[in-house]
Design a protein around this nucleic acid. Structure first.
Lengths: 391, 391
DNA sequence: TTGAATAACTTCACCAAGAGAATTAAAAAA
DNA sequence: TTTTTTAATTCTCTTGGTGAAGTTATTCAA
């Protein structure tokens, strides 16, 4: 945040940083933070003189620079099974307002969907009294297949329509940049931002929840274009496996996603029916509770899910050879029940030399992670465009 | 090749190109080609004035620039099952000499392997009377797992030893840059260079031969670091499938690689034994001939191989979502017998929206493709280093 | 309180890379 | 020969950066 730190991290010289930051401050994009009395310093020196003055050092103290939160705002939308989540954030990424709209998404046609998304965005703008010219960008995270080149939404389990262009109408409605991404990419970004260790090298985030998706992040940044999102959930484990929502059989998702577990459990257990085959969070919690209570059939179901998860990880390691794999999403709340089956299968499904060179992290993230990550992605794109235009 | 073309392709201004090229010419890196009488022009104009003068146009003709072949030389080594192939090329990438050394690679220890590789390189230098200071780089393409960060050779089916550091001794012996890569990456580069259409966007090259590997090329360049090479061959199709050389079971490779096909065929057919379980090219040709002659058991074997190939393609598409997939390597010489099974399986194993957005190309390349691609890779790295140091 | 000491910034002179305009060069067409 | 056309160079100028020196704000020690 202080200029010295910027100089160190960018490798640029000190005068260059000075020039750039003063230009950005003239644009009101950056501003100097109020000098706090208890400034925390990075403890990168091995000196013994750690005096009692709360980490203060001699010399002129660094002036902290922050993004001016008032420079503008971005809106992130997460569109998934029976849920449209919307969030508006200021330029520093802090949330100002959010909304959740539950509805049967599979009942929508393309026009209705666009109208709905636009209405949600409008509502956010109104709720926070955001001037139109202060809206800098809109990010839409989608559950399903996004064409990385065109941004079109090719297919989603949440929708009965295919090949939807959501970006163009929204861009026309608000006249700002619209960023489309797979929701797993958004989660991957949020997790990489939260843990700096995961923002080093190639990180693949497998998100297990309503579906099974994957996002790829390189050095903390989403990969542009092809290769950013992945449909690991629709890799086939067996030619004649269980039915998947995608229409094919034997997909990893059909063994591992919440809808698959709930559907399979209902064949031998009395459980309340799910709306559009999509169990709610409460229903999934119930399922886990019953399994933990010791139902051997449910235990077997979660063991099979563990196998499927191991196969997803094994395939990802073999094909992508990432430095890190993050297992994320609400589905991981049942990881304790999958663990032994997962580990046993993983051992046999990946070459040991590959397994050794990949670190696997389990982070059962919440649903808010999607819009959080999407805000980051959108801000990043807005930033980049701004640089290019004012350069 | 001419300066105008460089300006167009790089987007730099004309004076900039002039300055850069004249600097490089002073370094003897570039030189002007002799003005040929029948200069071939790019036919990018739609003008009707295509006179009979063999494509000549009005105006000052462009001076063709070429890399000075005498600027230096690079050596590429391909290390694979029972074979060490070596090639020395001039700075323009033209081969000057090559050698093939057949031996039982699995009998070597680390020191013997290093000595052997160094001896092969020495032989190439001597054979072409290359002054030591003219050797700019050495590229080594390996069958097996290469650690993209350290360049260590973690595991190879061709060797009984694991975790070998071949780069350091070779670098010390010759004092030049040593580039390590998976052999599939080398093939991918060679194919991308041969067909400009394949050098656009993300291209995954699946090489089927002694093993099954994959190389990833983005816009004609090998991806650096993690994610360049992939062990798609060791993705598992079934937990208890056929035995693979890697020690695990059910790998794609164990259904598809030449050694697997030959081994399985020998269980029901009289065929000459293979050296170290590695059938020769002649033996594989014999196998294909017998299958084409109409042996139903062999036809079934190749159909199963077709299924495994489809699964490899399906997994690659789902995880990587590339623009192009190239199926390459000698194993594809039997593609006609795999085709129907391959197509039928592929249809069921990939989401149609993904399949539609990936172009699949079949290129049964020869073995020389590996060293060819490795020369390109090495030249590219040497170039880059040169730029950085003289900058 | 008052001056070192220290560290964060700033200013200034300078350099290098590239852009645009005008100039020179080499060939075909008139 | 002269004109036209296209390639390449030269010149000037802007821009984005560096290094060296100067300025400012703060702690510590006399």
């Amino acid at each position: 945040m202080p200029r010295v730190e910027l100089a160190r991290s960018t490798g640029l010289s000190f005068p260059a940083i000075s020039a750039i930051t003063s230009k950005l401050m003239a644009e009101d994009l950056l501003c100097e933070a109020v000098t706090e009395t208890a400034t925390v310093w990075p403890d990168d020196t091995d000196e013994e003189d750690t005096d009692g003055l709360n980490g203060r050092r001699r010399g002129r103290p660094a002036v902290l620079l922050t993004l001016n939160p008032e420079f503008g705002r971005v809106i992130a939308v997460s569109l998934r099974m029976n849920l449209i989540e919307t969030l508006i954030a200021d330029f520093s990424g802090s949330a100002l307002a959010q909304s959740r709209l539950e509805l049967t998404t599979r009942g929508l046609d393309a026009a209705a969907l666009c109208d709905l998304v636009i209405a949600q965005i409008d509502a956010m703008i109104d709720a926070t009294a955001t001037p139109r010219d202060r809206l800098l960008g809109i990010g839409i995270a989608l559950q399903g297949i996004v064409d990385s080149d065109t941004g079109r939404h090719l297919w989603s389990p949440a929708l009965s329509i295919t090949d939807v262009d959501l970006a163009t109408p929204v861009r026309q409605a608000f006249g700002v940049e619209v960023v489309m991404a797979n929701d797993a990419v958004a989660v991957a970004l949020a997790l990489a931002a939260a843990e700096p260790a995961l923002a080093q090298g190639l990180t693949a985030t497998i998100m297990v929840g309503h579906g099974v998706g994957m996002g790829v992040v390189v050095d903390g940044e989403a990969r542009d274009g092809a290769g950013a999102g992945s449909e690991i959930g629709h890799v086939k484990l067996a030619p004649n496996g269980p039915q998947c929502r995608c229409g094919q059989r034997g997909c990893i998702e059909a063994h591992l996603a919440d809808y698959a577990l709930y559907r399979d459990a209902r064949t031998f257990l009395d459980l309340p029916p799910a709306v559009s085959q999509q169990p709610s969070e409460a229903q999934m919690a119930l399922l886990r509770a019953r399994a933990r209570a010791g139902d051997p059939r449910l235990e077997q179901l979660f063991r099979q899910a563990g196998h499927a998860l191991a196969d997803a990880v094994a395939t990802t390691i073999s094909v992508l050879r990432p430095h890190h794999i993050i297992l994320a999403g609400p589905g991981l709340q049942a990881f304790d029940m999958m663990r032994s089956a997962y580990e046993e299968r993983l051992e046999r499904a990946v070459l040991p030399w590959l397994l050794k060179s990949t670190a696997i992290h389990v982070r059962p993230s919440e649903s808010a992670t999607i819009v959080d990550g999407m805000v980051r992605r959108t801000l990043r794109v807005v930033d980049r465009n701004h640089m290019e235009t004012t350069e």
